[in-house]
């Protein structure tokens, strides 16, 4: 039961937080800490597989691998959103560059070149 609350809450919080905040130093730091925590958890689960099962039982999941799957789902949703936001920002910058170049290289009508 605890796991359901945890999973749903973390997905909703992740989505809202990502979409409502602007990329900043704080956000980057939070993301990096989260990344390290996931990495540490992964390492711990390799060294002592029993820990995962214990942790799973603690939050009400029957088996360790299920917990890993759940966590991976959350990480995946998070990553997908971050990447799409990043892509959107990049596209916006690309549009600015392209526009600047187009404006700098405006070509007058051909008739003006050859004529008068």
């Amino acid at each position: 039961m605890i796991i359901r609350v945890f999973l749903l809450a973390s997905i909703v919080l992740a989505v809202v937080w990502l979409l409502r905040t602007r990329p900043s130093g704080t956000r980057l730091a939070v993301m990096r800490v989260a990344g390290f925590l996931v990495a540490a958890g992964a390492a711990a689960s390799v060294i002592a597989p029993g820990l995962v099962t214990d942790a799973a039982h603690l939050v009400g999941v029957r088996e360790g691998p299920n917990l890993i799957l759940y966590v991976l789902v959350v990480v995946f949703v998070f990553t997908t959103i971050v990447q799409s936001l990043r892509m959107r920002d990049l596209e916006r910058r690309l549009a600015q560059v392209v526009r600047a170049q187009a404006l700098a290289g405006a070509k007058p009508p051909a008739a003006v070149d050859t004529g008068r």
């Binding site: 170049q101 187009a102 070509k107 007058p108 008739a111």
Partner: peptide
């Protein structure tokens, strides 16, 4: 007879 602005890539 148009002035042309060219986007180097499609946006």
């Amino acid at each position: 007879g148009a002035t042309v602005l060219r986007h180097p890539v499609n946006l």
